[in-house]
Amino acid sequence: MENRVNVLFTKQIKIVNFGIQSFYNDNKKQGVPSVHVDWKPVAGGNKELESILDDIL
């Protein structure tokens, strides 16, 4: 079976980048059409704060 990832790389790639902005910046520098989604884990991954939010948000 043909590897679909390899097929993907034969075409013009369009990237949706989540989280770390430097990945987006690098793609943009190389002229790859990209959009960046400013995403972070809920409460920055802090479990104590996340559990408070579960009760009140």
Partner: peptide, 17 residues
């Protein structure tokens, strides 16, 4: 600083929950 909001949220829990 994020600490202001974190401390406020913890105080909110202590006050209301």
């Amino acid at each position: 600083p994020m600490k202001c909001f974190e401390d406020a949220l913890k105080d909110f829990k202590a006050t209301y929950l």
